[in-house]
Design a protein around this nucleic acid. Structure first.
Length: 1026
RNA sequence: GCCCGGGUGGCGGAAUUGGUAGACGCGCUGGUCUCAAACACCAGUGAGGUUAAACUCGUAUCGGUUCGACCCCGAUCCCGGGUACCA
């Protein structure tokens, strides 16, 4: 009887669901183990074969830990707020909740078919009001908290108010504004507190994406265009809700040490946080410098006594810079301001005004994308103004350059061209002075500049020269010396800067959590916790209003009426915030909700939180390295500060599963004839959304790269992923032309007319869609790239998946067998037959031709289930225990591909041994059950067990079965293995040496001489040196 | 540019602590079965060399440490990922 995976898998999936086999208990005497997958966004495309990779791995661990006696929490849910559902809603008018519901149903169906051991009773959906009630609640907590630098923790804002009430208030940057707190108006108080709140409203420079009608977070912008859709993004100043993640920068950085995440991921986070230590330094504006003074050193500092006044002190404008290399201060020959710097207008001299204004305007109008594209181009303009060098007193010209970013440091840099490559490029371009102040200790650090000068950039290994009182000092010492000097003279102070920005928290979208804020007299207030959730209202359209307000502004009565009304006059209802939370809000705490998913009084009960604590193993994609994984750590620390949870990090161990890539068959060339183009329209819309006109073109080739038309024959242009070639009118005979260029085409299609949709060209003549896929290329699996492979029957391509043809167990084993979990690999089914064979062989091991009255084992693989209670042989036990050991080790170090190999070896060996013993086959079923749970359950049942194999005990490895008396020692001569010699393992080093030396095989190599040396590693190897 | 990974047969990949390189699977070759094919099963399969063996070479390249190196060290090349005027 061959194994019928279809019946068996359905049977057990139904059994698990009915019996709630995988329900986790919040009260248990067992140790806990929390295995979490990054929950999916339920997209319309459903799951592809890449999604389950991580889920299968985590499911294996979950099932393994259950067998090992842990109480396992292994939940699943949906990150169900998001842009695609909203865009679909805009196009079709369908409510995103309905689309989302449908998509979730499809996801669930697919997940169930793979046989995961999720506890579905704990399912969460971020778009469910019962869930987002608590997302809103956390937002309210953030709003009412501030970060106390003294305790290094978030605290209630009430404490701060108390402090202010008892004295004078100040702002976080240390500037007091005098005056008593009580003298401030309500609005002023609110404004001051906004500077402190962890959730705050401010005018902020945001990434505005006009096409999507929303603001995007930094990590949603890639190369100046939106990550989703690839639309242009510009910088714009808007009132904006933000979260003060920067307050946690240091802790987010330091706590990386505590967690077992991959080094590359931690490194990404470190870079993203971007800590740099240095010093601020003030430069005073030079009052009316005469042209004669320019660039000349007014010298003779006399600074050494330490009492001297610094140059330029005593009034006028001050420009502050941040530098990580204060030791190079004597190499400063110019200063550069960002085009957005606030002092520009004030300091620019009349004769430079025009040029400066033009430059600033041009910089402002250039999109982020253009600015990035021009990184290599040096541009800038002189303001005509000068600052005074604080140590040398020199006149330093002030320039404006767009290589200086407004958002980092102070928006101004001191130019040290000799030791910074960007300053160097700037100085070269504008012919500014270059003073070398560091002599590198090692010649290899030198880089050749132009003009035969030799510089070193970014090195900390060097000696100061041309630097007055730090001459001769090593860079590291010089930095300390200079900072202390800067502080002593009140020119600035040692300072730490972070690249990390506060996180934008408002989106001009519909399909997200409403922000629980209403405005009274222009002052934001939170809705009382007791009135949460603030439910997402219905709107007539999911687009922004005509006046550009977010979709929520379309909702009727989108106002809040406080009740009971402790109202003073004129109060009634107040406008509610119209932006919604970003996609990452709900995912920043979902791991906590799983602990107690149905709690209506708290986000999770204390008991549940104290029991489950943190995630033991978290598996998900590395694309969340600087987004989700930073935010979830931030919220965890915040909730810990407020003592809601006992942990400071969400996940002890994190694994990034690799991406399973799709193989796209790319269009090489596509040909349209003239009639086709003229008949319908004069343009072609590419998958990227770009529209290209045809004009006089006769033939167009569209191929695997891209472009802009220029009407030269066979000229190629490149842009995203479509390449177009336009050929002139002169080519009249298409077939003849094609024939002559045959080798250039993988496939040719001449059609009358058509259009692109989702990357597919649909011909107008109704012959459905035609795809031109010809050249294979490995890339990310995605719907738009037409390379999606689903694990089960795909209703779009109408193709069966692995599950239909081979079963879920086979899919699970095969995905694990493909290679290391963390590695990305293209999907191919080349090796599937090996895994499928293995499953059949496993099945046969438990079956015999017993009815044919053959001796047991002889009829192996027969029609009848047959195991015997006879004791197992030594060889059988050895195979079993070797496998127990290897598989246990493999799971514990997440090496799932090798354990599949080990199962194959085990089954092959047992088959060779004709093993039919319960003593072996029963533990084997348990061993394999985390990987192939369906067949394991079926065998377990046939072995006579009433209960699910889930509740079995993982077999215990016993060393004794592996102990050998002898070992085939490989003997190498000079490190090269030459022969083997079987020796007892009881022998001592000396005895082994003696045996080897007397071996006949060795004589040949010794050639009569005595060996120079002999190395014996007992149980391993013998090496003879001759 | 910078940071982090990685480079092993025809292919996916093993080698856990410096100790038999190439496990396991795919593919390929030959064989058994079959009228034939498919399936299944058996054998072989890093390269060179030989009737066979011996032997030689072999983990991107070059060099080093070691009795012994895919593994450690130095330099170089290539591939993948992240990030980017971050002062």
């Amino acid at each position: 009887m061959e194994y019928n995976f279809r019946e068996t898998e359905q049977k057990w999936q139904k059994y698990w669901a009915e019996k709630k086999t995988f329900r986790a208990e919040n009260n248990s005497s067992k140790p806990k183990y929390y295995v979490l997958d990054m929950f999916p966004y339920p997209s319309g495309a459903g799951l592809h074969v890449g999604h389950p990779l991580g889920y299968i791995a985590s499911d294996i661990v979950a099932r393994f830990k259950r067998l090992k006696g842990f109480n396992v929490l292994h939940p699943m849910g949906y990150d169900s707020f998001g842009l695609p559902a909203e865009q679909y809603a805009i196009q079709t008018g369908q409510h995103p909740a309905i689309t989302t519901e449908n998509n979730i149903a499809r996801y669930r169906e697919q997940l169930d078919k793979i046989g995961f051991s999720f506890d579905w009773e704990r399912e969460v959906r971020t778009s469910d009001p019962k869930y987002y009630k608590w997302t809103q609640w956390i937002f309210i907590k953030l709003f009412h908290s501030w970060y106390n630098p003294e305790t290094d923790k978030a605290e209630s804002i009430e404490k701060l108010i108390e402090k202010f009430e008892s004295g004078v208030f100040s702002l976080p940057n240390g500037e007091g504004r005098g005056g008593a707190w009580s003298s401030l108006s309500e609005k002023e108080k609110s404004d001051v507190l906004m500077e402190y709140r962890l959730a705050y409203l401010s005018e902020a420079m945001v990434n505005w994406c006009a096409a999507l009608g929303t603001v995007l977070a930094n990590e949603e912008v890639k190369d100046g265009v939106s990550e989703r859709g690839g639309y242009p993004v510009e910088r714009k100043l808007m009132p904006q809700w933000s979260l003060r993640i920067t307050a946690y920068a240091e802790r987010l950085l330091n706590d990386l040490e505590k967690i077992d995440w991959s080094e590359s991921l931690k490194e990404s986070q470190r870079n993203w946080i971007g800590k740099s230590e240095g010093s601020s330094l003030k430069f005073h504006l030079s009052p009316n410098p005469s042209p004669l003074e320019r660039g000349t050193a007014t010298s003779q500092s006399g600074l050494h006594d330490g009492n001297a006044l610094s140059f330029g002190e005593g009034g006028g404008e001050v420009i502050e810079v941040f530098t990580t290399r204060p030791d190079t201060v004597f190499g400063v020959t110019f200063m550069t301001l960002s085009p957005e710097h606030e002092l520009i207008e004030k300091i620019t001299t009349p004769e430079n005004k025009k040029a400066v204004e033009e430059y600033v305007t041009a910089a402002k109008n250039r999109s982020e994308r253009e600015r990035m594209a021009e990184v290599k181009n040096v541009s800038g303009v002189f303001t005509g103004a000068y600052v005074i060098h604080p140590f040398s007193g020199k006149q330093i010209p002030i320039w404006i350059g767009d290589y200086v970013l407004a958002g980092y440091g102070t928006g101004a840099v001191m130019g040290v061209p000799a030791h910074d490559s960007r300053d160097f490029a700037f100085a070269k371009h504008f012919n500014l002075e270059i003073i070398k102040v560091i002599e590198p200790n090692s010649p290899s650090l030198l880089e050749k500049g132009q003009r035969d000068e030799v510089f070193c950039f970014d090195t900390y290994e060097g000696t100061c020269i041309n630097s007055d009182f730090i001459n001769g000092m090593q860079v590291k010492d010089a930095i300390k010396k200079i900072i202390s000097e800067i502080e002593k003279r009140g020119l600035g102070k040692g300072k730490t800067n972070y690249r990390l920005r506060d996180a934008n928290f408002g989106r001009q979208r519909y399909w997200g959590e409403p922000i629980p804020i209403y405005y009274k007299d222009g002052i934001p207030h939170t809705i009382p916790e007791s009135e949460l959730p603030l439910v997402l209202p219905e709107v007539d359209k999911y687009l922004p209003t005509e006046s550009g307000e977010p979709p929520l502004a379309r909702a009727k009565n989108w106002t809040y009426t406080p009740h009971p009304q402790p109202l003073s006059k004129g109060e009634g209802s107040f406008p509610l915030e119209t932006t919604t939370m970003p996609g990452w809000a709900g995912s920043s705490w979902y791991y906590l909700r799983y602990m107690d998913a149905h709690n209506e009084k708290e986000f999770a009960s204390r008991e549940a939180i104290n029991y489950w604590k943190d995630v033991d193993l978290y598996i998900g994609g590395s694309e969340h390295a600087t987004g989700h994984l930073l935010y979830v750590r931030f919220w965890t620390k915040f909730l810990n500060d407020l003592r809601y949870i006992p942990i400071t990090e969400p996940a002890k161990k994190l694994i990034n599963q690799g991406m399973i890539q799709g193989v796209s068959e790319k269009i090489k060339r596509l040909i349209f004839n003239k009639d086709a183009l003229e008949s319908k329209s004069n343009s072609l819309t590419l998958p990227s959304g770009k529209i290209i006109g045809f004009n006089e073109t006769k033939i167009i080739y569209v191929s695997a790269d891209t472009n802009l038309p220029d009407f030269e024959e066979d000229e190629w242009y490149s842009e995203s992923n479509v390449n177009i070639v336009f050929v002139k009118n002169s080519v009249l005979n298409i077939p003849e032309y094609l024939e002559s260029r045959k080798e250039d085409y993988d496939s040719v299609f001449v059609c009358k007319s058509g259009y692109w949709l989702n990357g597919i060209f649909h011909s107008e003549d109704g012959k459905s869609s035609v795809d031109f896929l010809t050249k294979p290329e490995v890339e990310k699996m995605s719907k738009s790239k037409l390379n999606v492979v689903t694990p089960d029957y795909d209703p779009v391509t109408k193709k069966n998946g692995i599950i239909d043809d081979y079963g879920a167990d086979c899919l699970r084993l095969y995905e694990m067998f493909l290679g290391p979990l963390e590695q990305s690999k293209p999907w191919n089914t080349n090796g599937i037959s090996g895994v499928s064979n293995f499953i059949r062989k496993l099945w046969r091991l438990y079956h015999s031709n017993a009815s044919a009255s053959l001796p047991p084992g002889e009829g192996q693989g027969g029609a009848f289930f047959f195991v015997s209670n006879e004791p197992a042989t030594k060889a059988e036990l050895k195979t079993l225990h070797k496998t127990i050991k290897k598989v246990t080790d493999d799971i514990e170090r997440y090496s799932f591909n090798t354990s599949v190999s080990n199962f194959m070896i085990c089954v092959n060996e047992l088959t060779d041994l004709k093993c039919y013993k319960r003593e072996i086959l029963e533990p084997l079923a348990i061993l394999i059950s985390p990987y192939a749970p369906h067949i394991a359950e079926e065998l377990w049942e046939k072995l006579g067990h009433q209960e699910s194999i889930t509740f079995a005990q993982f077999p215990v490895f016993k060393e004794e079965y592996l102990v050998e008396d002898s070992f085939d020692y490989p003997v190498s001569i000079n490190g090269k293995t030459r022969f083997k010699i079987p020796l007892s393992l009881q022998l001592t080093k000396e005895q082994i040496e003696k045996e080897v030396l007397s071996a006949d095989e060795l004589k040949k190599y010794l050639d009569g001489n005595a060996p120079k040396k002999i190395i014996v590693v007992p149980g391993r190897i013998v090496n003879v040196v001759i």
